[in-house]
Amino acid sequence: MIELKETTIEELKEKAIELRKAAVTMVYKAQSGHPGGSLSAADIISALYFKEMNVDPANPKWEDRDRFVLSKGHVAPIQYAALALRGFVPYETINTLRQYGSPFQGHPDMKKCPGIDISTGSLGQGLSCAVGMALAAKRDEKEYRVFAMVGDGECQEGQIWEAAQTAVKYELDNLIVFVDYNRLQIDGTTDEIMPLQDIEKKFEAFGFETKNIDGHSMEEIVAVLDEVRGSTNGKPKCIVANTIKGKGVSYMENVVNWHGVAPNDKEYAQAMEELAGGLK
């Protein structure tokens, strides 16, 4: 077993800032990519990669590792930032996002990048893969857990609910699903495009144990992970994380257009300056 050192909440907050800087830098250098959803997911990613998940950067395919499935694969930059900061790849890899030969493909590619447990990018599909991994752990009587992150817009895909019902059927209490509920998608707000209704109640109705947190409060993220750790109640977990798309960069926050646009020189400088000052 690989034990992570105890990481304090303050340290996790600092890591979340570093992750944001790295993700924005990647997208800026590539002049391509998805900053908005990367920033909304940053705090959860920090807690997972710097505290919660049992992973080994020196042995990324270690069979007893916890798995992470980024079902909303387009926010790869935030996961890549974590992989770079944890040492799965050299830190300089952040300069190669979306370039020919880079492990940092436009969307996560398990064949090219160490630490990616499944290739994703086509929305709605990752949760099914996570269910397969969690089921394998149960069948093999292994202790590892599977963490998945799905987008809110992605929950418009029917396959998410096919996967959800299967997780409940097979009593996958080793599966923890985060919904990055930032309420925006490419064409507008989720309410305008396709209302999600009460996403937490939907998962609850499917049979999940659900939680609802502020996805930018490290205290709440850590607390909810403490709560679900070691659960043997037979219920998969769904944590609805209320987040802000673009969180940490003022001009990106809650702005639909920052879904998949790269900052220019001036915008990048401002972003770095704001992030240096921490989360507001």
């Binding site: 398990m110 709605g124 599909q125 099914s128 893969c129 269910v131 397969g132 991994m133 396959q159 096919e162």
Partner: peptide, 17 residues
């Protein structure tokens, strides 16, 4: 639920099944 079956199978395959 064919689509889910395909994804679940892929998840199983990542673990050596």
């Amino acid at each position: 639920a064919e689509q889910n079956g395909a994804g679940l199978a892929a998840g199983l395959a990542t673990t050596g099944k």
